[in-house]
Design a protein around this nucleic acid. Sequence first.
DNA 1: TGCCCTTGCGCG
DNA 2: AAAGCGCGCAAGGGCA
Length: 627
Amino acid sequence: MRTFTTTLGGEPVQVDAPEPGTFDPEWFRLVFPSGGLYGLDVESTYMDALAQWSPDFGLRLIQFAAEDTAVVLTLSDPDQLLAARALLADVTVSFASHGNMDVLSTAVVLGVDITSRNIDTLNLARMAFTAKADKRDLKDLTTRLIGPELEAADAALLAHFWDLWPGRRNAKRSDVERHGWSAVSTDEPRYLVYAGLDAVAARALVDILIPLTGAPPALLEVEAWLAGRANRIQILGMLVDTDRLTALEAEAQEATSRAEARILELTGGVKARSPKLQDWLADHGVNWDCWEGALTEGGKPSLAKDNVALLWDFELDAAGSEVVSELAAFRGHQDLLVKTKGVRDHLASDGRVHPVLAPNGATTTARMSSSGPNFQNFSKRDPRMRGVFVPEPGHVFVTIDFDQVELRVVAGRAREPKMIDTILAGGDLHQLTVDELAAAGIEIDRDTGKMANFLIVYGGGGKALHEQAGIPLEDAYAIVRAHRDRYEQISAWSQYLALERQAVRTISNRRLPVTLDKHGNPRVYANVNYDTQSGARELLVHAWLYLDLVCGLGELVWYPIHDELVLQVPEADVDAVVAQAETAMRFDFLGVPISASAIVLVDEHGDSRWMTSKLAEKIAAANGVAA
DNA sequence: TGCCCTTGCGCG
DNA sequence: AAAGCGCGCAAGGGCA
């Protein structure tokens, strides 16, 4: 046994690393008996973009920690591997680890699923430290909340990686690390001590972070459950129709590179996405002083997709007009290119992508976020990209959306009787706004009423309405004023929330930070938006939890998209699941009925894909394919 | 070369 | 008095 004595936060810590061939499983289970909560960490070979799903990915060490003791197991020793698997598989044992790298690794590499028995200290840290600037990696948190020893151990290990680097000393840090994580000896004391301290820190952080979250136990329990579900979704991943992906990729690639090449040629070296393109256009007929299109945040004319057509209003020379048409072609395929490449870059050898679903990835609202690829922003206007994703064999996609959930959250939180009555009566909230403004002597159409309603949710004002609705500024201000007058309870609610200059508390007593503008003043007008977005997020999680605990169908959730659950349902069960899922997503919220409706996703050939049959028909018609 | 900012674009 | 919110991703380009 190699035993190292060190400290963390000044307290003594013992790190034991059994030598291969001498491992005593009985001793191991005496250190980690059933029923405990243990720190968990793994050390791997260097991770590339596909991480756990890369054929090159391997685990080298796995570490478990009780309060002041860590045991570092070497996984190349069959006895230690067996003991690690057995402890992980003990359903009475829970684990604490930072981020989901350890949980995913144990599932994918060791074949043991601990997703429902893990506490993620990164999630706790996100709830405890809500400012965007806060660092939340294990090393920083440990230094800040416990002591500097882990950071020192990390620095010592990195210094050792430079010793292991065979080439010149002035190599890139990333290359040295890549090499080091795979090359360092499992006998190296600096490696073993660092590894052991990681696990001890994760265990210690649970007790330190929980009070700092300021969250009630019920919320913490739901969040732990959700993190487990999110990890399961990532582990399973999504099946990709690679033929479709390849075809779309080719189309996007061909269209964009042709346009790009032609623009480069015509402009003598200016790229399609270069900020210099505005200058070039100025020399070929565009007078930016007369520009009526949108401006960028930096105040320059925007060449975004919807603005390109406005360039035709100028007297362009021959080269200028050709560049404008090529730019339109480029913008028309830019999203498809980005999204196809994104899926391709994350496509693992199992024919799937494994996106990260971060349970509270949005810093200021705790909404879920998605990456690798992001499943929350695939186009609906051109749904072909969504159609690349197909269900497991024998399954069908079903999507269930909340109806206008954010407005209903506002109505319930504000106790706004006009809105609540309209919802109860099955009426239309946007028409209600039209009628209310008419009563105040202002005539608007339903689209404007809808925009005005969403400005409330988003904390916007007259200027935004003026720009979005294309109505005179004075009219827009009048609409906003009348909206405030007619919805007294919503006005009172936003004024009440605007008193909070530090943080707001959501319906489940989650603390959300008030954000600051560039002058450091609190943007209190955004507080209603934060409460609403976060509230809607909690309602979706509530429905998912109900679906899991009451219906036993939590596993069917393929992906959550803010106000929508996409389910993957065995063909034979579709009708029953639709009924149960609608039950889960229909409930009372503060006297406001929350409703939802399901759509079964089947394409024009009767196959299920992640697109609606209506959209599939439209595309089929456009392509001349019989539906 | 890596890092950071800006721009553009999709979703809710 | 007025203030549109939250994400992820890729590319260009300035800077050290």
